[in-house]
Every structure is written in structure tokens, then in C-alpha cells.
Computed example of a mutant assay.
Amino acid sequence: MVVVVSTVDVLVGGPLRRWDQHLMLGGHGLAVTGWPYAVWRVVVVGGQFWLVGSLVMIAAAVAAWRRRDLVLVPAVGGWLVVTNAVVWVLKQVIGRTPPGAGVDLLAGAGQSFPSGHAALGASCLLVIAALMAGTAGRYVIGAVHALAVGVATATVALGYHWPSDAIAGWAAGVVLGLLGQWVVRRRAEPGPRLASCAEA
């Protein structure tokens, strides 16, 4: 619902988009400097696809080994490809310019909406938590949500995205992450398994 509402608002120039413009284009926009800038630069890395995507696949490989599950790694890999494709398609269709362009245009002018960092950070972190279920997963779910929100906030603080980009990206990431968790839980059901040394 958050994804739909924020997307419609951006498309029709609603109050959220007007707030974006007031916050990011009014005066000097957001001017984060000093140590806060350095902190946000570290936090935003949590949404880098090369990092969180790699961590998802490592967690999937570890979980597959523990579960003796032949299909978990390709299942999670397929989910990761679909997730990245959905975010890319949304960016192409909306075509919003980033705040750094100094204007807020749609229809092919940019790729700012939704925030890929926020979407991929939220979705991948949720799936990593699901893959860790039974060990540390239940203890890290709160930290996962906090980091996902932190990544979304960092994209705005650093001027990479409009606030509505971050909100829509985070919300889309949660939806895609829940889909990924469903894939992981489905793979926990009985199915093809690797034979252990004792069974061989």
C-alpha cells in the first residue's frame, strides 16, 4: 500500500512530492557535512547491491549446506534476479531525476524513483534474516529493520534521492523481502536433499 500511495503521489505531483521539492530544492537543500556525512556514507553501503546481494547468496549457500538442500541456492538466486529486475523496471518507467539535477522531472529523465539502495537493502536484509532462522535470525530481525530504514534515510541525507524515493524503495523492499522469506520458508519443506556423509 505504501508503494502504491507514494508512486501515485509522485506521478500526480501530490503533497509528498511537493514536500520533496521543498526539502531538497528549497534554499541550499540538505547540506550534510562533517562527521554526520561520514556516518551516512557508511550506512548507505548497506544498500549496495554488490554487497547485500553477495551476502544473501553466501547466507543461502551456508543454509543450503546445513539443510542439505539442493534447490535453496538457485531459488534464492532467482528471487534476487527478480527483485533487482523489479526495481530496475520501476526506475525506467517512472524516470525521475535525482535531487542533484536541481529539477524534479519524470518520464525518462532519470532513474531516482524508487531508491534502489533502500529497496535492495530492505529486501536482502530480510532474506538474510530468514536464512539465519533457527540460529541468530530471530535476534537480528530488529537490527535488520533498523539498518534498512537507516539505508533509506542515508540516501536522502546524502542527497542521492528524494524522500519519497526512499519511502517507496523501502516499502518495495519490504514487500520483495517478504516474498523472498516465503521462498526460503517454502524450501524448508521436505524436498530434494543432499546426502550427508553418514547416509552415503
Rank of each mutant, 00 (worst) to 15 (best):
E199A: 15
V39Q: 00
L105A: 14
V52N: 01
Q21E: 15
G191E: 06
L105R: 13
S54L: 13
A61N: 03
V183Q: 09
V8D: 03
L72A: 07
L178D: 09
G95F: 11
G116M: 00
V149Q: 03
V39F: 14
L11A: 15
M24D: 07
T155G: 10
G13E: 08
A101P: 05
L105D: 13
Q92D: 13
S112A: 15
A107F: 12
V87K: 00
A168H: 07
G47V: 00
V140Y: 06
V89S: 06
G95T: 10
A154T: 03
G26Y: 07
S164C: 04
G150H: 08
A200G: 05
L72N: 06
T153H: 01
A122L: 04
H117G: 08
R17W: 09
G95H: 11
H117L: 07
R185V: 10
V144K: 01
I94P: 02
R193H: 14
A168K: 02
S112K: 06
V12I: 15
R186C: 08
Q111A: 12
V43M: 05
V2P: 12
W35M: 11
P190A: 12
V4M: 08
R185Y: 11
A59F: 02
Y139F: 13
R186S: 13
Y37T: 00
M57F: 09
A38Y: 05
V86K: 03
V183K: 08
V93Q: 01
R138Y: 04
A85F: 13
C124L: 03
G142L: 11
G108T: 06
V12A: 07
A122F: 02
R187Q: 15
G191K: 07
L55T: 01
A63E: 13
G46V: 05
L147Y: 06
V71S: 11
I94H: 00
Q181R: 15
G121P: 03
P114K: 01
L90A: 15
